[in-house]
């Protein structure tokens, strides 16, 4: 097929040469009219920036955009916007802000990417928002056997989860409180509560939490979570409780 094509090209070139030689004295034909084009319709332009382009969850970003030669400007997710403008947004997740400008001269688009860190790292803006209740939702207490300060097997998963949360929030400082049930003697229970608090602290340290962030306080049987006189209640009171150290 290529061969055929070449042959026709050669033929065409020969014909053209003959025509040129033969028509030397003829009046040249007029040029064809230019195609009709719209008057003054340049293509639109678009630009968008996000400041800052990386935030922690709950943070805010300022979007700034500029367009020209556009009749219809929109940002995906925000809808139609003015041709030029700024807007503050609070994305929950990493987002691409896609600006589209359409005009008579065509369309243009631009994109600004914002990265949102769901787990804030090395920034305590979010940590200051963690209140006592939220903290205790995440960092659960451990419970002890009667007259014992050993971390039980069933407390190991709690300790691991607690340590994970604390390792994700390295600026939080924690009071480890040791508590005892109502039985037994006040003074001895203060010493036992100290052993309980210290055992919980050491378990967190073993799970990677810095000891500098943890301090122990024994409450003995001075503060009770449950005031019934039953084993279920006593069990609730034999605990290592974690609270924010502020």
């Amino acid at each position: 097929m290529q061969f055929t094509y070449r042959r026709s090209l050669t033929l065409a070139a020969g014909l053209a040469a003959l025509l040129t030689v033969a028509g030397c004295h003829k009046k040249p034909a007029p040029p064809p009219p230019p195609p009709p084009t719209p008057a003054a319709a340049p293509a639109p332009t678009a630009a968008i920036t996000a400041t800052p382009d990386t935030i922690n969850a709950g943070g805010s970003v300022v979007l700034t955009w500029h367009t020209s030669d556009a009749t219809d400007v929109s940002i995906e997710g925000l809808g139609q916007v003015a041709a030029n403008g700024t807007q503050t947004v609070n994305p929950a997740n990493s987002t691409s802000y896609h600006l589209v400008a359409r005009g008579d001269g065509g369309s243009a688009d631009a994109t600004a990417n914002v990265t949102v860190n769901s787990a804030p790292v090395q920034n305590n803006i979010a940590e200051s928002n963690i209140d006592e209740a939220a903290f205790e939702q995440s960092v659960k207490p451990v419970f002890y056997d009667y007259d014992s300060y050993d971390i039980r097997a069933d407390a190991q998963t709690t300790i691991q989860a607690d340590a994970n949360f604390l390792n994700q929030h390295p600026d939080l400082k924690v009071v480890v409180g040791g508590y005892c049930d109502e039985r037994g003697s006040t003074e001895y229970n203060l010493a036992l509560g100290e052993n309980r608090a210290n055992a919980a602290k050491q378990a967190l340290v073993s799970a990677g939490v810095s000891p500098d962030r943890l301090r122990t306080v024994s409450y003995g049987k001075e503060k009770q979570f449950c005031t019934d006189h039953s084993e279920s209640c006593w069990q609730l009171n034999r605990r290592g409780q974690f609270t924010l150290d502020r």
Binding site: D147, G184, S185, Y188, L190, A191, L192
Partner: peptide, 27 residues
């Protein structure tokens, strides 16, 4: 290791201390 609390001196000699220890479990 273990809870130690509530010391008291022998008031006659001040050379001995009685106290409570949980070193063998119950105080």
């Amino acid at each position: 290791r273990g809870p130690d609390s509530s010391p008291v001196w022998n008031p006659k000699t001040n050379s001995q201390i009685a106290w409570v220890s949980g070193r063998t479990s119950l105080p």
